[in-house]
Design a protein around this nucleic acid. Structure first.
Length: 510
RNA sequence: GGCUGGGUAGCUCAGCUGGUUAGAGCACGGCACUCAUAAUGCCGGGGUCGACGGUUCGAGUCCGUCCCCAGCUACCA
């Protein structure tokens, strides 16, 4: 069975999960579930980035131990993803002992494999004891730190380790030439290409005085202990999650796909490949940079003040509808908007009226006209037309053209629309009135249940809960999650016993 | 400041190498149907295609200038 190891970005443990985090996790989950249905042996990894000055400061401000603080945040993220049915197989945390030792092993390996890629350099500047940070000129007001005007700034020198990123410009240029699909969508790829052409600077990768960090494994010449700076701490999580450098890590690595936000493209498409190359470790297959959700047209990000209670949005119609809305409304290769007005519209139009009601009317007619048993029936034009839509669905979902989840949903809904048209055109209630038309009625109902069974599978990556409900109402064997796309063309529900349940997408009264 | 992408119906968008009356979904209006969550199907109204100028027999579709939005990036501080 082909393997498919995919990851999401790990989120910074400095606040609660929000809509932006949710888009990425839900999108990656749809990709993961899609690949399971396509027959891949999927490993889906997500997690938390828990070190750094900000975390330490926030924890201190609340008078708690940093580890206790991140434990609590990580718990809230996990709970949120579970509530959203994100089917991760692994939840990595950068404070995990295994991650920490993996990072140190990776750094030592680079030092061994590519001696000279790490070097020490002195850095000097104004240091604020209050912030425990060097300050840029624009952060200094009247000779004092803007945040700590009562403290005096100290002109300080410290030695840090640097990574010779500049050395890898040629390698990266070659990488992007050889593997045009390494980074997508194309707009992101072009940005990174121009970045590389402009030239790359070496990056600083350790900090003295950084206490809440993985101890940097190489000794500085001045004897001052260094903490590992973010690049070499967070990025390797994808690798350490495989157990690196322990036995068996190569069975999972390299990852087939990193799903990230467009704001961290540079880290994943430039720094990360260079790090791996320096260690002579295989590169991941692809990096996919999704866009952002905006709220009422305003930029929504970890630091922005624009907020929306995630719980409130999920509670409105449930996790499945929330997942559907996000992935349908926000193009997965660009930005999109979230609004409750739009959410309500789509819930009613797409889910309740079109999809839910199609299931409802078809199942009701099978019960009423055929005692609940799906009649044996020949294939029809409905099947043929649907298969064209299904081909388009795969083209949007399987990665060959990127991961255009919104397009995938669009093609599923073309089937839904076709199903409703078919019902009206065939008018099974009329066929039911005339015994001479019994075979026609069988054909109509058989075609429709066949379509619903297909739809349950196609929609499963997006709405796993509702897909299972529908599958169960149809009387399908086993679990919908265990179905395979390959078997869809020959899927035949003849003989299944349907049982109409509660509406799939009930409308709130009023 | 530079670079990239974009500005098309109320909303979200499609319109390939220029060619008859500019399309889809949602929203809105009318008709049909009654199996269904008063759901569905059909028909329809609605757009100076960011602005101005140009090329052409003919331009959302090409060229120039400008305005606006988003992203990447630089410099100053």
């Amino acid at each position: 069975m082909p393997r498919f190891y995919l990851t999401t970005a790990i989120d910074y443990a400095n606040g609660d999960p929000h809509l932006g985090h949710a888009l990425e996790k839900v999108g990656a989950d749809a990709i993961a579930r899609y690949h399971r249905l396509a027959g891949f042996d999927v490993h889906f990894c997500t997690g938390m980035d828990e070190h750094g000055q900000k975390v330490a400061q926030t924890a201190a401000a609340r008078d708690v131990d940093p580890q206790a603080f991140v434990d609590r945040i990580a718990g809230r993220f996990r709970e949120t993803w579970e509530r959203l049915a994100v089917s991760f197989d692994q939840f990595v945390r950068t404070t995990d002992p295994a991650h920490k030792s993996g990072v140190r092993a990776l750094i030592r390996r680079i030092a061994d494999t590519s001696p000279g890629d790490f070097y020490e350099k002195a850095y000097e500047g104004w240091y604020c004891v209050g912030c425990e940070l060097f300050k840029r000129d624009d952060e200094i007001v009247d000779g004092h730190c803007a945040l700590h005007p009562t403290r005096t700034l100290e002109w300080t020198e410290e030695r840090n380790f640097f990574f010779r990123l500049s050395k890898y410009a040629g390698f990266l240029r070659q990488l992007f030439a050889d593997r045009p699909d390494f980074l997508a969508p194309e707009s992101r790829r072009n940005e990174v290409l121009s970045l590389i052409e402009r030239g790359l600077d070496d990056i600083s990768i350790s900090r003295a005085r950084l206490s809440w960090a993985i101890p940097f494994p190489l000794a500085a010449s001045d004897g001052v202990a260094q903490g590992t700076w973010v690049w070499f701490d967070a990025l390797p999580n994808y690798l350490t999650a495989t157990g690196y450098p322990g036995a068996g890590w190569k069975e999972r690595w390299p990852a087939q796909l990193h799903v990230i936000g467009k704001d961290i493209t540079r880290l994943h498409a430039v720094i990360w490949p260079a790090m791996l190359q320096a260690a002579e470790i295989a590169l991941p297959g692809r990096v996919w940079a999704h866009g952002f959700v905006q709220l009422a047209g305003e930029r929504f990000s970890k630091s922005a003040g624009v907020k929306l209670e995630l719980g409130e949005a999920i509670d409105r119609y449930g996790a499945d509808a929330f997942r559907y809305f996000l992935l349908r409304e926000v193009p997965f290769d660009a930005d999109g908007n979230f609004s409750f007005e739009r959410f309500d519209e789509r819930y009613h139009a797409d889910l309740a009226n079109a999809f839910g009601n199609l299931a409802s009317r078809v199942i009701a007619m099978v019960e009423r006209y055929r005692g609940g048993v799906v009649p044996r029936a020949p294939r029809t034009g409905l099947d043929a037309d649907d298969h064209a839509s299904i081909a388009a669905y795969h083209a949007a979902m399987d990665g060959t053209n990127g991961y255009l989840l919104h397009e995938g949903l669009k093609h599923i809904w073309a089937c839904v629309q076709r199903g409703n048209e078919y019902v009206d055109r065939r008018a099974p209630w009329r066929q039911a009135r005339d015994p001479v038309l019994a075979a026609d009625l069988d054909e109509t109902l058989g075609a429709l249940v066949r379509q619903l069974a297909r739809l349950a599978v196609l929609v499963q990556p997006f709405m796993p809960g509702k897909a299972a409900e529908l599958w169960s109402q149809l009387g399908g064997p086993g679990a919908v999650a265990d179905q395979r796309f390959a078997a869809l063309a020959t899927l035949d529900p003849a003989g299944w016993k349907v049982a109409k349940g509660a509406p799939l997408f009930p409308k709130p009264e009023g």
